[in-house]
Every structure is written in C-alpha cells, then in structure tokens.
C-alpha cells in the first residue's frame, strides 16, 4: 500500500512540475519580449489580450497550424527526433531541483522535490549535456551549411564552458559536503553560499550565459553570420520546441543557481516556494537584462575567455576554498 501511495505522490508531483514549468517557459517568452521592449523604450506585444497577456497562447496555436517542411536532403528520423531530445532533456532537469521544504497533506509528509537523490547534481549535468546532442543532431540532420556550422559552434561553446561550470560549483560542494540538492539548500539555512563564494557565483553566471547560448555568447544563432543557426530548417511546432527548450533550460539553470548560491527556498515571512520563485525570476531577469545591454562577442574571443580566463580562475577559486576549509 505504501508503495502505491508513493507512486501516486511521485506521479502527481511530476504532472504538476511539468505543467508549471511549461506554463512558465511559455510566459517567459512574453516576459522577455516585454522587458526587452521596456528597456528599449517600446511597448512590446500588447494586442493579444490586456497587456499582451495572451500572446504566448496565440503564438503556440499559430505554430501548431503551420506547415511542416522537411527539407529533401534532411536525415528524416534524426531531423524529427532532435527537437524531442532537446525538450525531454530540458524538462527532465527539473526532477532533482527542490522547490520547497516539506508539505503535510492527508497525514503524509511530502518532500517538495520530484526525486530526492544523492547524485542530484551529477544527474543535472548529465541531462544538460544530453540537450547538446539534440542541438548537434538538429543542425547536422537538416542538411544545411548554416545549420551544420551553427550546431558545431553551439556544441564547441557549450562543452568548453561546461568544464568551467563544473569547476565553479565545486566550492559549494566543499562547503555543503553533499551532492544532494536538498541538503545543499539546508546547509544554507544560516547563511547563503553566495556570501562565502561570491566569486564562484559570478563565474557560474558567466558560464551559464554560454551554456544557454544567450547574449553576449549567442554565437550559435548569430543572425548576421549564420541566418538562424542550428534550427534554420525547422518550421512549425518543431521550431517552437527548440525555442521552448531554450527557455525551459534557462529556468532550470536559474533554479540551479538559486539552489546552490541563493539559499533555495529559505527566506523570512513568505512561504518557501514563493521565495524560490522570486529568486529564480530575479536571475532570469538578469539574463534578459544582459541580453539587452551587451553586444555579441567574436567566436575566438569566446573560446579564449572560456579556456584561458575562466578555467584558471575557477581552479584558483577551488584551491583557495579547499585551503580555507581544511585549515580552519
């Protein structure tokens, strides 16, 4: 009986998390357009519903009814599977992120995380890397020069920054002594890790921009060089899926930053889940803000920054952190 209840609990948590995540990812497109517009002193979308609030729904319905073009020299199975891989990996990242403490419902104590596993962080990185397969396959299988170039650039850039991203968070692991994201959050009850690891947080954020292929590192879709990048040949809902996955990925990376550095659900007065969402959207706002502010870097500058600047800095941060923890 206990197993059955557990199964039902996990199923309900899954459905709720996926639904909320997809809702936020859809509305993030509107938020991004609105914020960008306001920064550039424009109105942004304001025709569909009051303040353009129905715009994501209109966009979604439109994409569903659009013609689906599969180019003739595309590798058809891979071409269809690629966007599915990207979205599956992006949504699955949410499984280990704790979005609240505990909830007591019907006499059961429910942990507000889908899977409270000890290798949470490793799983998260594995899923983030899986998404890259979708990007590379998508670009290569469409049979387009720009697509191939865009996907290769995306892959090279993502893997280059993944090394530094992995190194930047080791400081947090040393302080918390666990890879379980719930325990990492609970270790921050007294003080957030951003206080002890401000340097690691900045490095993490820089790597996150590259990992998400967002400005100022949006090389894979540099419009002036590559037309559109790896998703150039995609149309209708398959194109929308790539887009959608990008925003889901963005939410997941922001949620990870919240969990590792900003104390997750901890905060005074308000309920935990609300605090968590506030912090996530604060980081998402920074992502959008940076896009509106900084110009795009050149590709060789990106690779140079990743390997020659960020990598040594993260190693230095790691050694200093380990030194102070052991000496103390």
């Amino acid at each position: 009986m206990e197993t059955l209840y557990f199964l039902i609990e996990v199923l309900i948590k899954n459905v709720v998390v996926i639904a909320v995540l997809m809702f936020f990812a859809a509305y993030l497109t509107l938020i991004e357009r609105k914020v960008l517009a306001r920064i550039q002193i424009r109105y942004g979308p304001n025709r569909a519903g009051p303040f353009g609030i129905l715009q994501p729904i209109a966009d979604g319905i439109k994409s569903f009814f659009k013609e689906e073009i599969i180019p003739e020299n595309a590798d058809k199975p891979l071409y269809v599977i690629a966007p599915m891989i990207v979205i599956t990996a992006a949504i699955s990242m949410a499984a280990v992120i704790p979005f609240g403490d505990k909830l007591v419902l019907f006499g059961r104590e429910i942990k507000l995380v889908i899977a409270d596993v000890d290798v949470g962080l490793l799983y998260l990185f594995a899923m983030a890397s899986l998404g890259e397969y979708g990007v590379v396959l998508g670009g290569w299988s469409s049979g387009n020069k720009y697509g191939v170039l865009g996907s290769l650039r995306a892959a090279a850039q993502m893997i280059s920054y993944e090394v530094s991203l992995g190194l930047a968070i080791i400081g947090v692991l040393i302080l918390s002594g666990s890879m379980n994201l719930r325990e990492i959050v609970n270790a921050q009850k007294e003080m957030w890790f951003i206080v002890y690891q401000p340097f690691a947080f900045i490095l993490y954020m820089i790597c996150a921009f590259a990992e998400l292929n967002r400005a100022p590192f949006d090389m894979p879709e540099a419009e002036s060089e590559l037309a559109c990048g790896f998703n150039i040949e995609y149309s209708s809902m398959k194109f929308a899926l790539f887009f959608f996955a990008e925003y889901t990925h963005m939410l997941a990376v922001a949620a990870l930053a919240t969990t590792l550095f900003l104390g997750g659900w901890h905060g005074p007065y308000l309920p935990g889940t609300l605090w968590f969402l506030i912090k996530v959207f604060l980081i998402v706002f920074v992502f959008i803000w940076v896009r509106a502010t900084y110009p795009r870097l050149r590709y060789d500058q990106i690779m140079k920054l990743g390997w020659k600047v960020l990598f040594p800095l993260t190693i230095l941060n790691l050694i200093v952190t380990a030194f102070f923890v052991t000496v103390r």
Binding site: V10, V17, I18, M22, E68, I87, T88, I91, A115
Partner: peptide, 21 residues
C-alpha cells in the same frame, strides 16, 4: 522512480506536441 517517470512523461509531451502539429 521520479527520474524515470519525468523522463517518460517529458518524452510523451514531446511526441504529443510534434504529433499534433
């Protein structure tokens, strides 16, 4: 189990979206 279920459910969502369109 939660990880297995979220991977299955999200692939289902992906297949549904592509299938409907």
């Amino acid at each position: 189990l939660g990880i297995l279920i979220i991977i299955l459910l999200s692939s289902l969502v992906a297949i549904l979206i592509v299938g409907i369109s």
